[in-house]
Structures are given as C-alpha cells and as structure tokens.
Amino acid sequence: MPSRVEPGRVTRRDLLGAAGLWTAGLAILGSLVGLMRLPIQRVLPEASDRFKLGSPEEFPPGSSKVLQDQQVLVMSTQEGIAVLSMVCTHLGCVVSYSGDGFTCPCHGSRFGPLGDVSAGPAPRALKWLEISLAPNGKLVADKGREVEPGSFFQARGKA
C-alpha cells in the first residue's frame, strides 16, 4: 500500500497530467496578475500641480487671500509668504477660512490660523505648499510638494 513513508510509484501519465494541469493553472494565474496592471495608468491625465500665484507685490505683508479655484490660502506676513492647501487632511473636503482658522464642513475638523489641527478627526495639519520664483519674477506654488509648516518663503531679489 502506498503511504507517506513509502509512497507508491507515480506513473508517467499521472506526472505529465499533473504537470500539464499546474502549468495551465499557473499560466492563467500569471496572466490575471499581469492584467491587474491595467487599471493603474502610467501617466495620469491631469493638469500640472504647479500654478502661478502672481507677483510678490500682490501679497503685501499682513494680508491673506483665498484662491478659491486652486483651493489654497496665500498668507503673507513679515516673515514671508506661505501657501496653505485648503483641502482637509481628513477626507478631502474643502475647508472654509474665517481669519482665525479653518473649518471643515464634512466632519467638523478645525484648524488654527497656521493650519494646525485644533479639533476634530483630521490626522494632521493642513499642507504647506512649496513656493518658488519663476524666471519672470512671479510666484509659483506646487500642490505636489510640501514644505514644513511654518517655513515662509522670502521673495529675495525684490528688496
């Protein structure tokens, strides 16, 4: 009797049959796994994350301006200029700005004037976006790049 200790002879037919079955199975599985690449695109069909803010003079120190279409707040202080993303870090609703902080309409997150979480479910502070100076002297912000909260941008060369 064949057993685990003394296995019986595997016939050529069984071996070839099993090999064929496993080959077919692995081929189908492999193709399916390969096809799972399909829903993930190589290039995302989207506008650039970089957008123009305008020239630094448009943001005098002490002013703040909401750019509704870009969903950002441009804040200008003596230390420099900062661009805060107004997309809630909780679930992506657009927060509203009231001078002394931000409020999210969807799940009630609240942020302080510098974007720090003061209440609610938001896991982290609002994003501070990277600012750079274009060759023509205009400010450019990038939604894809973050900087440390509290790092203001100094538009040098102007002064």
Partner: peptide, 25 residues
Amino acid sequence: PVHPENPAKAPWYFLGLQELVSYSA
C-alpha cells in the same frame, strides 16, 4: 469641486458611518 455643501451628508444608511468617520477616518 470648490465648494462642498455644508453639511455634506451621505444617504441615511451611511450616516452612522459618517458619524464614526468624524472621529477617525
């Protein structure tokens, strides 16, 4: 895409979840 409704509520059967989500996503 710029102005969410306030409040932005899901249909009734997801509002229990929305309440939970308002503690942690």
